[in-house]
Design a protein around this nucleic acid. Structure first.
Lengths: 194, 194
DNA sequence: AGATTTTTAGACAGTGTTGTCTAAATCGTC
DNA sequence: GACGATTTAGACAACACTGTCTAAAAATCT
């Protein structure tokens, strides 16, 4: 049911979504929706909690696959970027979160305060720590690991934004091309110079 | 009136905005709104046309200030990035466009097809041409100017996204810091090596 | 099977919004 | 000042949605 609500909220927006649609999508009667959630707003809160938690979990599970001991730095980082994009950006949860942030982030910042603290901030920290370790191991030359982490994410995701917004089909090839290009640029800036 | 409609659409979203609010914001009666625009949807179309045109115009006017003959490449590119962000991203039009893209881009792609062709695509081309020229003049070493242009934009804008979404106050200092960091990284990758 | 809980379909009042209509008021122009 | 065009306030029907209610049906548990 949270799933169905997420789908409809994502498709129609909060104001545009109506309870009947959500109930139909969930294959359930409207009354049942009201049995489980006081009203539309508290349903939204539940959905946001669910989605943000899942997104965080997924992000950290991908982070765990970071190439701490790379064999081929370029290739391994590219594969990592692909995993990150595919699992955290291109899926429905990612789309939902982006759209909802854009819509309601300014109006209800407290809806996302939890996500802000435990989501992006921690991902950045964790990624920064990985890069710092790679630097310490002699693979990279990084002065500001935090900035580098954010730059890595910016580079790897930005070419996907527009296609994602318009729901264009995103081929596996595009994803690889884009990620490879981003990593190449990243390493051009931060790979150890010899 | 288009202004007022833009403000309200931006604040409330399309489904959430109502004509009375728009009329009030414009200081005009509801009937007058209907005099000028058939219905809510065609009003939205008019607003989108207006805003996208203005955004494009502004983007190109900032592009014209690109440092073709830099004195201090780092400083000049940073200043350029700051101008770009301040005039095309942080203002109300930028917010409106981002939000509307996220909301309605997938549902009504034809609303933005014009913008897509004449907006981002052309900006990228123009910026790529500038970078190519800088490379030709010996300032940069760039193999793929198109990619470099998009990377420049990704780096300079990404740290602003989250604060912008949440409507956080964005100090002039932050803007400078962020832009400087992005340009430093960009040059680390593409500045001529000697 | 019997008892208890949950779900269902449908009706319902209350509210808000859209788009139309009308008659009065205001504006611009000669 | 007079005339035509535009704007205004307000009323209006049509519609959609929310959240509540009820009595029947279905599912769950013992």
């Amino acid at each position: 049911m949270i799933e169905a609500a997420a789908t409809v909220f994502c498709r129609e927006g909060f104001a545009g979504a109506n309870i009947d649609l959500i109930a139909a999508e969930a294959g359930v009667s409207r009354q049942t929706v009201y049995n489980h959630h006081r009203d539309k707003e508290s349903l939204l809160v539940a959905v946001v909690r669910e989605i943000t938690e899942r997104c965080n979990a997924r992000a950290f599970s991908v982070l765990a696959t970071f190439p701490d001991h790379p064999r081929d730095l370029q290739a391994d980082l590219t594969a990592f970027a692909i995993r990150l994009n595919r699992n955290c950006l291109c899926d429905r949860d990612g789309r939902f979160l982006r759209r909802l942030l854009q819509n309601e982030g300014e109006r209800y910042p407290e809806l996302f305060s939890d996500w802000r603290e435990n989501g992006p901030a921690r991902v950045w920290d964790a990624l920064a720590a990985r890069f710092a370790r790679l630097a310490h191991a002699g693979w990279l030359e990084i002065d500001d690991p935090d900035a580098a982490a954010r730059q890595f994410l910016a580079l790897t995701s930005s070419d996907l934004q527009l296609p994602l917004i318009f729901g264009d089909r995103l081929s596996e090839d595009d994803l690889e091309q884009t990620s490879a290009r981003a990593v190449r640029m990243f390493l051009r800036a931060y790979a150890r110079r010899n």
